[in-house]
Amino acid sequence: MKSHTPKNQETTRFHVVPHCFWRYPIVAGIVTVAVILLGMLVGSPNWPQATIKKVTTEQPGGTLWAVAQELDHSSSSYTNTQEYGMINPATRLVVDPLKSASWALAPNVNEALSQFLAQPEQQQVRWAMNYDNSIRKALKMGSMGGAMSTVPVPSLTMLSHLHGDFGPVPVIANGILQLARNGYLQNYFQGISPGNTFEYVNIWLYDQPYLLNTAIKNGLTDDQWGMIKERGFFVGPWYLIIPAIAHVLLPGGSSGPGFVLWNALIAFFFIVLFPLIPGLRDIPRYLKLYKLIYATDNIQHSPLVQSVKRSLGDETNASI
């Protein structure tokens, strides 16, 4: 009897049908086989890590410049002073490694270090800054602007022709370069770190122009939509598109707090506003795109079932 049909079935335009369960294990099997085959045949991103030895062998001038920036407190490692054990990058990344290897260094490097440490910090920074500015001038660099363009790397020849009040800084920088090129520096940083940690190695490397330049050339910085890309592989984490949009397109999204704030707002919109605010939450009802989702009720609409229904009249119910 029509009046006895449950209210929800009356309004849904749908029927209760036998559930086809076997599609689940079958589709699950297909997906499992697909990911195994993709893993075997296509592989995954696997670009080897850059080592201090490799970077400094390829771009020794970049290392000398990085040491100057570490000593004049302008290197990017000063953003990482909150890292456990970092405290002062000039000490951690330049002075301490040199002290630890004093037995292997030429006497002039040890003397330069003693001369450097004997001076007050103000003088140390002034020497390093002079060297840093002189390199910038030689490279014809203006003030640091236009964040995401590659940085020119000075050659050793260019650096050897620089003159100015640099104090012992160039000798100290060459001492670090020597330790870096013979592999000592990487071993030293990993040796003073527990386990599988690369804090000092990576922070040191990030002060070099090499790592960021390579990323920029490969379009991998956040500003280049690097969040959704992988080096040397065609499929990256595309699913990070929402955070990537927040970072690249939305105002202030490129700073840490801005990035977190935008993501929190987006999450708030999708979790709270969209499903709860009248009007917003009704959008799917108006769009009617659910028609693309719902399965067509083939059985109930088949000519046979329809004719049976007609012959039975009102005696049948919705779930024939």
Partner: peptide, 20 residues
Amino acid sequence: RGDWESQFVSMHSDDMLFTI
């Protein structure tokens, strides 16, 4: 993962997301 991407992203994120 411990590859180049890990190395770069560790520093790139350390100077952005992990500064807050």
